[in-house]
Design a protein around this nucleic acid. Structure first.
Lengths: 230, 230
DNA sequence: ATGACTTCAAACGTCTGATGTCTAGCTTTT
DNA sequence: AAAAGCTAGACATCAGACGTTTGAAGTCAT
């Protein structure tokens, strides 16, 4: 049979992490040693390490060594965002649908435990959006707004996944739609409604406000993709 | 500044895919040509290719060439499952919580459009589970059951994410709990209830049945992690 | 003794070139 | 025309060399 040595190396090192023989923050043996102990050349080990770096399991510090990352959800699930950007148009609506499920749930959770500091941050975001002078700025603070809400839900895994499905490109396209349809005022109002619900610590209301917001985005994509897409 | 050539190569090739210059199924130039056109050595190009293979963007066929994958959600989001297995115990509960959000929603969607063939498959799974003779077999058919439901929801992106958060290790641990607490009969009954709701094409009921099921799992993990975990 | 500067060994980053192995497609044979 | 064998091209792996960066030990002036 074939000899996918690199793949084997990836699995072996990965297994060391799963089994707890390599813990978060720990330093790996130098590439040369690893190569010898795994019975392969340094090039092959490097390819394996590169793969695990891509998965955010390892972190290489040049001139120093290779370390195991914190293995936190924010890192390991960051790939979702990258993946979302690569999905074809065909799946844009699917992404929004997932967001439609996650965002209301997360917003409801946030309503139960959001801090005053986070509420202030949200208000600041809202203000920045209202005075934004460029499309990029608008998207930037919109992203920040939703990220704060997701984080306030107190579930890092959920927050990472939600952030991932709300990738920047999708968000950018949605805002272009908002502007084209002169719905900026309405969208801003929706954000204000979400903030108000959170401030009132009203989970049900927050859930509803978030659903309204995502649904607007969904409707926009449905018309665009339905008309031009295919 | 530093010269992360490999990283640059990854981004460049990735950008070619995003920009549509490399479409799904297309073959890339040979490593040698790529190296020359990107102005770097073959080793470096290989590391970049390896990274993109890990992300399931490229697929290397030895002796033949390197191709762009289908870029479907099942591929690009498969990493979620791998990531879930690497998450520390600390985040197990977070994963279950996400599943608690996604699974009822997906099950409700499935109730609206599941096919008769899929219903038959589910029944077959259920039967296999009832006569399973080993722990592995049980987990196997349980996994299959939920995967069919997720797929029947008609959203490949959602299905991939749901499958990802229901990683095999987590599922295995949950079943161990089911057996330890002699709750096998009850768990089987819950699956039957989900199937019944789907068969009745009753979204609300299906949602409720799925929520009940996931909540049982969540409760189990809460006791285990609360007691021994820390 | 303290702080800043210098030196240096270790480790990663990149390149080169050679050899092994596999695949697809063509050629030959039947 | 179908099956067996052959070959060019492409990936897999290896070995070795050299460049760059980093952290820390060591040095020196204050």
């Amino acid at each position: 049979m074939a000899a996918p040595l690199t793949e084997a190396a990836i699995q072996q090192v990965r297994q060391l992490v799963v089994d707890g023989e390599l813990v978060s923050g720990q330093r790996l043996p130098p590439e040369a040693e690893l190569a010898e102990s795994l019975g392969m050349s340094r090039s092959t080990v490097r390819e394996a390490v590169r793969a695990l770096v891509t998965l955010r399991v390892l972190d290489v510090k040049r001139g120093d060594g290779t370390y195991v990352t914190s293995l936190r959800p924010e890192l390991l699930l960051a790939g979702i965002g990258a993946a979302a950007d690569l999905l074809q148009n065909e799946f844009t609506l699917e992404l929004v649908q997932v967001r439609r499920i996650l965002e209301p749930a997360a917003t409801a959770m946030a309503a139960r435990q959001i801090t005053d500091a986070e509420l202030s941050d949200l208000e600041a975001c809202l203000h920045q959006m209202s005075v934004a002078s460029s499309h990029e700025e608008l998207v930037e603070y919109d992203e920040q707004f939703h990220h704060i809400v997701a984080t306030a839900a107190g579930n890092a895994t959920l927050a990472s996944m939600l952030t991932g499905v709300s990738s920047r490109t999708t968000r950018g396209r949605a805002w272009r739609g908002v502007i084209e349809t002169s719905a900026t005022a309405r969208t801003m109002a929706q954000h204000a409604e979400i903030l108000a619900a959170l401030r009132a610590r009203d989970p049900k209301l927050a859930e509803a406000a978030a659903l309204m917001h995502v649904s607007t985005t969904e409707a926009w994509f449905r018309t665009v993709l339905g008309a031009a897409g295919r």
